[in-house]
Amino acid sequence: MQFKRYHTDDLSNKVAETDKSLAQEQELIGLLVSSTTLTEQKVKETIQFIKKAHGSVIRKSGDPYYTHPMGVAKIVLEATKDDDTILAALLHDVVEDTTVTLEQIELLYGMEVAYIVDMVTHYNTYGFRWKLDKSDNQNILNHCKDIRVVHIKLADRLHNLRTIAARKLEDQKRIAKDTMEFYIPWSKKNNVLTWVSEMENICNQILNADPL
């Protein structure tokens, strides 16, 4: 499949990057090129695309935001080497959090990647920015039959757990409780057991932690 070239002039000219994030880029490029059929050029272009899309946004940890989708893609690689799933992992937040549209993703990456991104972020809302409440979200996920979506949603949750220390303990406990009550059972239901033990360990540590 031939992909169209990127035109990122309309995206942010200010990007948040650090020596650490640049090192993460190089590590991820090497991992993806050696483990999938993605070319080095495609991986580099996609990282640049999400970097420009997320611009100067910083996570609570102080890291550039684009390190999150890179982290998610790295985790997903432990479960699948599927190119479309890896690309969707890198792109999973751009439609929800930036000016990039689902139509642009489809134009650049094709229907399958756009479909996965849509399912992960908007559950077939076709780019309209609206939020489902927690029960609606969980009901839809419980009926999700696409393992690619399952892998990305769980990897997203695991990366957020791994980087949760920057949040207030109250928020940590809320996220840990949600993980224990929904995401871990959902993971087991879909027979994705790779990350269950780590998620349980992190959540138990948080839930057993005493306020300072």
Rank of each mutant, 00 (worst) to 15 (best):
D9K: 09
D10L: 11
S12N: 15
S12P: 03
V15G: 08
V15H: 10
V15A: 11
E17L: 13
T18E: 08
L22E: 13
Q26Y: 00
E27M: 06
L28C: 07
L28N: 05
L28W: 01
L31K: 15
L32Q: 07
S35E: 14
T37P: 00
T37V: 07
L38Q: 10
L38Y: 08
Q41V: 07
V43T: 11
F49Q: 10
H54I: 01
V57I: 12
V57H: 09
I58P: 02
K60Q: 10
D63W: 03
Y65Q: 08
Y66M: 09
Y66T: 04
T67R: 05
H68T: 05
H68Q: 06
G71T: 12
G71H: 11
K74Y: 03
E78Y: 04
E78F: 05
D82F: 04
D84C: 05
L87E: 11
H92D: 11
H92W: 02
V94Y: 07
V94F: 06
V95H: 11
V95R: 12
D97F: 13
L102C: 03
E106I: 04
L107R: 14
L108W: 15
G110H: 09
G110D: 12
M111D: 13
V113G: 03
V113F: 02
V113A: 04
V117N: 11
K134P: 00
I140G: 00
H143P: 00
K145I: 12
V149G: 03
V149S: 05
L154G: 10
L154W: 08
A155E: 07
R157V: 12
L158I: 13
H159Q: 14
L161F: 13
T163H: 12
T163M: 13
I164K: 02
R167D: 10
K173G: 04
A176H: 04
A176I: 03
Y183F: 15
P185A: 08
S187Y: 01
K188H: 01
K189I: 02
N190K: 15
N191D: 14
L193Q: 08
T194H: 10
W195I: 13
E198M: 10
I202L: 11
I202M: 10
I202N: 06
I202G: 04
N204C: 06
Q205T: 15
L207H: 04
N208F: 02
N208I: 01
A209W: 02
A209F: 00
D210F: 05
P211G: 00
P211L: 11
L212Q: 09
L212N: 10
